[in-house]
Write a protein that binds this DNA or RNA. Sequence first.
DNA 1: GGGAGATCCTAGCACCGCTAGACAATCGAG
DNA 2: CTCGATTGTCTAGCGGTGCTAGGATCTCCC
Lengths: 192, 192
Amino acid sequence: MSVQERKQRERAERERLIVATARELAEQQGWDAVTTRRLAERIEYSQPVLYSHFRGKREIIGAVALEGATEMAVAMRAATSSANGPRERVTALARAYLDFAARNPAVYDALFQLDGGLAYAQEDTPEPLKDAFAALMETLSEVAGDGVDPGLFTEVFWASLHGLATLTRTGRLLPEHAEPRIQLLVDRLAKP
Amino acid sequence: MSVQERKQRERAERERLIVATARELAEQQGWDAVTTRRLAERIEYSQPVLYSHFRGKREIIGAVALEGATEMAVAMRAATSSANGPRERVTALARAYLDFAARNPAVYDALFQLDGGLAYAQEDTPEPLKDAFAALMETLSEVAGDGVDPGLFTEVFWASLHGLATLTRTGRLLPEHAEPRIQLLVDRLAKP
DNA sequence: GGGAGATCCTAGCACCGCTAGACAATCGAG
DNA sequence: CTCGATTGTCTAGCGGTGCTAGGATCTCCC
């Protein structure tokens, strides 16, 4: 049995290598540069090996997205846990969110811009995605305001952050006034 | 001279045909389906003809984006002009924006999602883009609130709308609660 | 009418995602 | 220990992509 176990371990290790390499390449040169040929060359295997782990490029993007979702949730919880008071927590959350998007553009794209073949806002949505949304909601629920559904409020706040993140990243918004935008957004949306 | 003028007119006409066909194809089957070969076949010319009008596919996307920006500005101004009071105008504006995005997904992508090679938020930004932003600002300035820069406020509000539009379109948000989201957003962001 | 120039198309490049089929390494049964 | 079966991997290739070089044709002007 031990031999099979070792093989399985090696296989899992190689899968991690694929995802990590895809992510690295995407961060370095953008997702367009992540071709199956280049990816195969970097992991020092032939192309078909990729397809023994994933159905195709889309699933690789999905794997990077899931990894990113987990990290993002951790980053957001870390940021909010060291802030005092609901409003400060929301500000810290917003900053952490936008910071993550700016520092990991390729991962952010995999999560929210590209098609990774993942289900969103459904029962069969993968756990990491649900958890990232949950991390948002934990902090945002405190400032949703009376009579406002926390889920709805989280969606709206999230959409605003997402808009800021993507428009900034594609050059539609200049990054200079990022901080006042955050202040204004939190100031208006957060209720009490 | 008349012959040359006719030729120029025909050339301009063909250019319009290219842009219109690209847009139509993108709306029907998505931008991935807009290949230079398919596009060339639809306009009944060979591929190289496209390159005598545009540098490449990117510029064709850019042309569709500019066309869309003009239409979007018209749609937003039409929606706001028939509303009474600043708050009603803002609601109408938000609805018009999201409605345009939902009805013209390919055009919206060309504008804000894809790379059309256009400059944004700069001096050499094409006029239609500036004007679309101006259309937003006209209505939003009224509700920016005291001491808040109208430009900054417009950026934040626009980002929120953009987030709602894109997350909804890619299935990250369910379209069911679109209206309450708009209400909540306007309610919180619009000041007086 | 004939040469010059504009106009357009055929053919092809390098690359893409993805896969069939050959080959080699490894395993388990006798 | 040997030998067939299974597993794993690679080479080669398919149909597609954006884009372009070079030749053919057509039109205009002298």
